[in-house]
């Protein structure tokens, strides 16, 4: 098991390095300069600016320096646009918000998805099953940027139940719409995957044996069917997490939750490369770490995996 974890780490660490180096190179070779604006800046000032942000050094030195700062000090450097704020400040401001509703959405998607999938597999061809299948097909074409306006239309403009934007850590009413918008399509996917794998498992021999020896239905499902049925669900969690992180950008922009995605889009529009790279690297690291956890979980839940 330890060898397996080490092997996974051996993939994860180069991935992270590639991500940092590639994004730095992208920035370096981009036409123009973070400081080029409509107002002409004299070459001397430009030189000073470059020197201040370390952009006058040779490329490899810049990359090594940046890498060292990021890896050893978690320091993404100063923002290129806001003179009084570092990238760390900007991230520290938005990240807790994104983390909060992201976590809630993830839990909601997994809990509801698995629950609904299992129930609809057990009661195959009941009205509940049909509803679950219908919903999961519908949600496939309702990505978060379509869900968000529709939700606001219904719950804010139509029924006046929930606020259509903003964020407060103390008032859960602000959390509901972002969480629904972000989690629905993954909920649907998880429901579909759980349902079909549960149906597979319920048809297998060891379930028939368990039933034959007279185990109560509840025990058959919980003790014998659940674990093997969850294997494909676990393997879907990695990709789901990645797309949820991506989707959080939409939520941040549309619901003005003040999360990290909004900083990303703003910095993209301002050409604030330092912030863009900081956010990309942070979320990339999160993704890679999460995939590591999923891989380990996978090896633990599925005895067929060899390591």
């Amino acid at each position: 098991m330890i060898v397996y974890i080490l092997k996974r780490l051996a993939v994860a660490i180069p991935t992270l390095l590639v991500l940092i180096i590639v994004s730095y190179m992208l920035m370096h070779f981009a036409p123009g300069n973070p400081f080029s604006s409509e107002r002409a800046v004299s070459p001397e000032i430009m030189k000073n600016l470059d020197a201040k942000y370390g952009l006058n050094l040779p490329l490899w030195e810049q990359i090594v320096h940046y890498l060292w700062q990021v890896v050893a000090h978690f320091d993404f450097g100063p923002s290129f646009v806001y003179k009084d704020r570092t990238v760390n400040d900007i991230i520290a401001q938005g990240f807790p918000v994104t983390l909060t509703y992201g976590f809630l959405s993830f839990i909601a998607a997994v809990a509801v998805g698995v629950g609904l999938g299992i129930t609809s597999a057990i009661r195959r061809n009941s009205w509940l099953d049909y509803c679950a299948v219908g919903l999961s097909i519908g949600a496939q074409v309702l990505p978060n940027f379509v869900m968000a306006p529709i939700l606001v239309l219904i719950f804010t403009l139509g029924l006046h139940w929930l606020p259509g934007g903003g964020w407060s850590f103390h008032d859960p009413r602000f959390w509901i719409l972002p969480v629904i918008a972000l989690s629905t399509s993954y909920m649907a996917s998880i429901t579909r995957i759980t349902r079909s794998s549960m149906l597979d498992v319920l048809g297998s021999n060891h379930i028939r044996t368990a039933r034959a020896k007279g185990l109560p239905n509840r025990k058959v499902i919980l003790r014998h069917a659940l674990k093997p049925a969850l294997v494909p669900v676990v393997s879907y969690l990695g990709p789901a997490f990645v797309s949820m992180i991506t989707g959080s950008v939409i939520v941040d922009v549309y619901f003005s939750t003040g999360g990290i995605g909004k900083s990303f889009v703003d910095s993209a529009l301002n050409r604030d490369y330092a912030v863009m790279m900081g956010v990309t690297i942070l979320l990339g690291t999160l993704t890679i770490l999460f995939n590591l956890v999923v891989d380990i979980l996978y090896a633990w839940i599925d005895p067929k995996i060899r390591y």
Partner: peptide, 14 residues
Amino acid sequence: AIPYMFVLILLLVM
């Protein structure tokens, strides 16, 4: 393993 949407946006903006 790279969150491609962010890299794509990086590419488009730059």
